[in-house]
């Protein structure tokens, strides 16, 4: 049986990183990001990275770490509003940016992982997103063609995983992680909790281990972007 389990994030990225690589990183905002693997990618020193991720982290955390060190050449994202260093680099022309509508981004990654080279969608028709893309009419409505996305390495965050790479995600920390797991030539996962194979009820596995080549257990900080609470006195 091949061994998928690695000890540290640095071990798990050994031999996978190179200049000009395309990386996917899961997460929505700072929720469900593979924070240890992102830090290890920074430490690998790989340059000119194309990063596909819904967001760009915040200053000094998540993908913000790789922006600080100028290791990212291009971002493919749907929303980057939380990162001042990103905005500065972009407005200064130091960083390429490809905006994708969030659903288009998710579907492009799903398609890439499923061997679907392209698909048609209504999203973005009549906007700058449609510029230069083939269009086609179905039932009298206009659609634009979008292409599937793949990555050299997909960095994924899951809640629990077993030694065969079967994964479970927690709450809204799931987001882009399951699709990205399918779209990496090599998929590396960090989990809160690594368990023996056979621990999960097979009915409740979100991502089957076939998509996962390497897995580590690592403690995450899980930083919160917008802590919002209600008062106990408030009767709901």
């Amino acid at each position: 049986m091949s061994n998928k389990v690695f000890k540290t994030a640095a071990d798990a990225l050994q031999g996978l990183t190179f200049d000009g690589m395309v990386v996917m990183a899961g997460g929505f905002g700072l929720c469900g990001i593979p924070e240890n693997l992102i830090a290890a990618l920074r430490d690998s020193g790989a340059q000119n990275i194309t990063a596909i991720s819904n967001n760009a982290g915040v200053d000094g955390f998540g993908l913000g770490l790789l922006l600080e060190t100028r290791q990212i050449k291009k971002m493919v994202s749907s929303y980057v509003g939380e990162n001042k260093e990103f905005e500065r680099q972009f407005l200064a022309g130091e960083l390429d940016l490809e905006f994708n509508p969030q659903g288009t981004l998710a579907e492009r990654i799903r398609a890439g992982g499923a061997g679907i080279p392209g698909f048609y969608t209504k999203t973005g028709v009549g906007t700058v997103i449609a510029e230069g893309k083939p269009t086609r009419e179905f039932d009298g409505e206009e659609y634009i063609m979008e292409t599937g996305l793949k990555a050299d390495v997909a960095l994924v965050k899951a809640w629990r995983g077993d030694t065969q790479g079967n994964l479970q995600f927690k709450k809204t920390a799931r987001n882009f992680n399951p699709m990205m797991a399918t779209a990496g030539k090599v998929t590396v996962v960090e989990v809160d909790e690594l368990v023996e194979v056979g621990s999960f009820d097979p009915n409740y596995i979100h991502t089957p281990g076939i998509y996962v080549q390497r897995i580590i257990e690592a403690k995450c900080e899980k930083r919160i972007e917008q802590l919002t609470v209600r008062e106990k006195e408030e009767v709901q």
Binding site: S77, S78, Y79, V80, G81, E87, F90, L91, L97, F99, P101, Q102, G103, T104, T123, G124, T127, I129
Partner: peptide, 10 residues
């Protein structure tokens, strides 16, 4: 303003 469309276009 460089923020992005998020899910609005979808």
């Amino acid at each position: 303003m460089v923020k992005g469309m998020g899910g609005a276009m979808d």
